[in-house]
Amino acid sequence: MVLSQRIHDAFKGAVERITGPRTVSAFKEKGVLTPDEFLLAGDNLVAKCPTWSWEAGDPSKRKPYFPADKQYLITRNVPCLRRAGSIEEEYEAAGGEVLLDTADDEDEGWLATHGAPSDTKKEPEELPSMDTEEKEEKRHINIIPSYAAGDDDDAPDMADFEDADNVMRNDDATLETACLFAIEPDDANILRTRTYDVSITYDKYYQTPRVWLTGYDESRMLLSPELVLEDVSQDHARKTVTIEDHPHMAGKHASVHPCRHGAVMKKIIDVLMSRGVDPEVDKYFHLLLHLMSLS
């Protein structure tokens, strides 16, 4: 971590310790959330998208302003079907930052249900995406050497036992694992499928949700956070996506930095209100994830 980021983190930590969480809604004015609004939006996400769940997380990292069993939100095992390097235009058109399994039929979610044109995705000029914001902010991240998935050949050999009477190493009803890897989508751009756990925490300092990505390789071995950046748009890989400690889980994880979330959400809220749509705070996450092509 570079010095400027560490100083900022120390400052942010100190502010978070001495100030209480926001209690008055400023959703429409500033695009930010109170903890209660975060809970409301989280409950809505879990109810509408059952692949998301609330998590309790590590008891020692619990935030007192949330119930013990509703500390953050997570959805696991989301396939990443494309690598960012190969298809620049598409994600720009989608206004998305991270190329995970972009939703298909049902992800129109909130815009559609509120009478907005269902092809909003094709009108990026109307909805500001994260990348129209803040080109000048250069956040640097420190590169940690790759870790995690060891070459399996460095694992030790096990003692050789005659298979006991009642045990078999493998039987003929076991499907060959080669079959598992034989199923690759036809798209030439698709490498083997990495997967992601996507989580949403509440950032008390920025008063917004914060989205985190934990990556796994095609064998579901941990991916070092730098490799996660491969799946993120190059524009964002070193700026709005940073690698930091997760507030509830162990280790470093890639995160979409929340410093612009409030401003971006405010712009979207203004667009919606100008169309006569009254934005509801409990749909916040649908919109946020939609923006990131994560829903």
Binding site: Y147, A148, A149, G150, D151, D152, D153, D154, A155, P156, D157, M158, D165, N166, V167, M168, R169, N170, D171, T174, T177, A178, S219, M221, L222, G251
Partner: peptide, 20 residues
């Protein structure tokens, strides 16, 4: 009889490793 040791990422009946 029982069966079920997981194969490693190279398809061999061997342990895996992770370095943190």
């Amino acid at each position: 009889k029982g069966v079920g040791w997981e194969l490693n990422t190279r398809g061999k009946a061997r342990p895996r490793s992770v370095h943190l």
